[in-house]
């Protein structure tokens, strides 16, 4: 696999954000769906998750996770794909629509109205978790013995 281009990196990060997004929140941010035709209707399946022996060694199969995928085409021909965690067909549909819309003139609007809030909310959740973890970090101190 070759080194991804800047566009690919942005698309990758977007698709990751959409895959991790809460489906209800995404639906609230995107109530109306533009017309589209299915290249692959939403389908629920699994992906085998893998770990590495000793964290960095040989891969092994850990277990599966549920994933929903779909591919669609907008009326103007732009194609969008989605692979999202869970079993929500609407979640996958919206993710694929955004993937397609981001390849055209709507990109700036979608970035501002949809991706920006999703990213900010995710950052907030992550910061909250990190801050709670930080509060449970042990601060060791040495007991000072008496003189002599």
């Amino acid at each position: 696999m070759s080194i991804p281009s800047e566009d690919q990196l942005l698309r990758r990060s977007r698709m990751g954000l959409l895959a991790r997004a809460n489906p209800q929140r995404l639906a609230a941010l995107m109530p109306d769906l533009p017309a589209h035709a299915w290249l692959r209707a939403p389908e629920i399946g699994t992906v085998m998750v893998r770990g590495r022996t000793g964290a960095r060694g040989a891969p092994f199969n850990l277990g599966e996770m549920t994933v929903t995928r779909c591919s669609l085409r907008l009326e103007d021909g732009r194609v969008g794909h989605a692979y999202v965690q869970g079993r929500d067909r609407n979640h996958a549909t919206r993710a694929a629509l955004i993937d397609a819309l981001m390849q055209g003139t709507e990109a700036a609007r979608i970035e501002a109205d949809l991706l920006l809030p999703l990213r900010a909310e995710e950052d907030e959740r992550r910061t909250a978790r990190a801050e709670k973890a930080a509060a449970t970090r042990v601060e060791f101190f040495t007991m000072v013995r008496g003189e002599d």
């Binding site: 629920i44 085998m48 998750v49 891969p59 992550r126 978790r129």
Partner: peptide, 23 residues
């Protein structure tokens, strides 16, 4: 239930070095 689902493929191994740790 798992046996009723198609498998789309295998993921890349998870990088636990990158884990956002809670513990």
């Amino acid at each position: 239930y798992r046996t009723t689902l198609p498998r789309f493929g295998g993921a890349l191994p998870v990088e636990t070095d990158e884990m956002a740790v809670t513990r």
